[in-house]
Computed example of a mutant assay.
Amino acid sequence: MSPRSSVAPVVASGTVSAVKLLIATLAFAGAYLGVEATYGTPAQPAGAAEQARTVELSSRSMPATAQVPAPGTVTVSAVDALGPCDRPYQARSLVENNDPRATVSYGWRLERWSPGTRRWQTYLGIGSGFSGESQTVEWQPRVVNNPGWYRVVLSVSGDAPLRSERFLVSC
C-alpha cells in the first residue's frame, strides 16, 4: 500500500469537513445579515409623518413616588400598562453604604404567591452593586400574562432582606 493511497481518504474527509464548515458559516452570516436588515433601520412607509407618535414623559408615564424611599423600605408603584396584560412596575429603595470605599452588592427578586404550594416563589431576579455613598436603587420588572399576588424583595449583602407589600396583578 502506497503512502499516497492511505492519505487520500484523510484529505478527502478533511476537504468535505472544511466545505461543510464554510457552508455553515455562510448560512449563519446570511441569517445574521437578514436579521440585521430586518430589525436594523426600519424603512419609512409612505405617509410616515402622519404615523409618527410623540412620546411625552409625564407623571402619568413615571410613578409619582419619585421621592427617596425611607431606609429599610421598598416601594413599588405601577407604571402605565403597555398592553391588556402587560404590567410594568417600578421598585425603589435606599441602600445605605456606611463605608464609601466598600462595594455594596444587592439583588432584586419579584416573587409570586403560589396557591398550590402556599409559598412565595421567585418569578424574576436581577443583581447589581455599587461603591461610594448611599444610593437610591431602582428596578423595573414586568409581569406579562400572569395575574396573581406579587411582592418585591431586595437583598443587600450583610443585611436582612427587605420586602414590599404584596400587590395584585390582574388582566
Score class of each variant (00 low, 15 high):
residue 2 S to T: 15
residue 170 S to P: 00
residue 131 S to F: 08
residue 53 R to W: 04
residue 138 E to R: 10
residue 61 S to E: 10
residue 97 N to K: 14
residue 4 R to M: 06
residue 82 L to N: 10
residue 19 V to P: 00
residue 25 T to W: 08
residue 90 Q to W: 05
residue 108 W to T: 06
residue 126 I to H: 05
residue 104 V to D: 04
residue 24 A to Q: 10
residue 75 T to Q: 12
residue 64 A to Q: 08
residue 77 S to Y: 01
residue 87 R to D: 01
residue 104 V to Q: 05
residue 42 P to T: 12
residue 93 S to N: 06
residue 73 T to P: 01
residue 62 M to G: 07
residue 72 G to E: 11
residue 135 Q to Y: 02
residue 123 Y to P: 00
residue 128 S to R: 04
residue 28 F to N: 10
residue 82 L to C: 07
residue 91 A to G: 07
residue 44 Q to M: 11
residue 70 A to D: 10
residue 121 Q to V: 11
residue 114 S to L: 02
residue 121 Q to G: 03
residue 163 R to C: 02
residue 134 S to F: 07
residue 132 G to R: 11
residue 117 T to G: 01
residue 128 S to A: 15
residue 13 S to L: 01
residue 102 A to F: 08
residue 64 A to C: 02
residue 73 T to V: 12
residue 43 A to E: 07
residue 43 A to P: 01
residue 14 G to H: 06
residue 114 S to H: 05
residue 32 Y to V: 14
residue 43 A to V: 13
residue 51 Q to G: 07
residue 3 P to S: 07
residue 41 T to K: 04
residue 54 T to N: 09
residue 34 G to I: 00
residue 67 Q to C: 01
residue 126 I to V: 14
residue 111 E to G: 00
residue 115 P to T: 09
residue 23 I to T: 14
residue 59 S to G: 03
residue 93 S to Y: 04
residue 125 G to P: 00
residue 22 L to E: 04
residue 60 R to C: 02
residue 7 V to L: 14
residue 91 A to T: 07
residue 141 P to F: 07
residue 121 Q to E: 13
residue 118 R to A: 15
residue 34 G to W: 10
residue 161 P to V: 08
residue 155 S to A: 14
residue 96 E to A: 11
residue 109 R to I: 00
residue 97 N to G: 06
residue 51 Q to R: 13
residue 52 A to I: 14
residue 82 L to S: 08
residue 167 F to R: 07
residue 86 D to S: 11
residue 146 N to C: 03
residue 83 G to T: 01
residue 105 S to I: 01
residue 123 Y to W: 12
residue 105 S to F: 11
residue 118 R to E: 14
residue 109 R to A: 12
residue 144 V to K: 13
residue 151 R to Q: 13
residue 145 N to W: 06
residue 108 W to E: 09
residue 35 V to I: 09
residue 121 Q to C: 01
residue 50 E to W: 05
residue 58 S to V: 02
residue 154 L to W: 11
residue 132 G to N: 09
residue 41 T to M: 07
residue 132 G to C: 05
residue 142 R to N: 08
residue 138 E to M: 12
residue 162 L to T: 03
residue 165 E to S: 14
residue 105 S to G: 03
residue 24 A to K: 09
residue 27 A to H: 02
residue 1 M to K: 08
residue 74 V to C: 05
residue 26 L to E: 03
residue 1 M to C: 05
residue 77 S to C: 12
residue 54 T to W: 08
residue 52 A to T: 15
residue 87 R to E: 04
residue 127 G to H: 06
residue 46 A to W: 02
residue 159 D to I: 00
residue 111 E to R: 11
residue 39 Y to I: 08
residue 104 V to N: 05
residue 136 T to I: 08
residue 58 S to M: 04
residue 114 S to E: 09
residue 93 S to A: 15
residue 85 C to N: 15
residue 101 R to E: 10
residue 26 L to A: 14
residue 153 V to D: 03
residue 73 T to R: 11
residue 120 W to D: 03
residue 149 W to H: 09
residue 93 S to K: 01
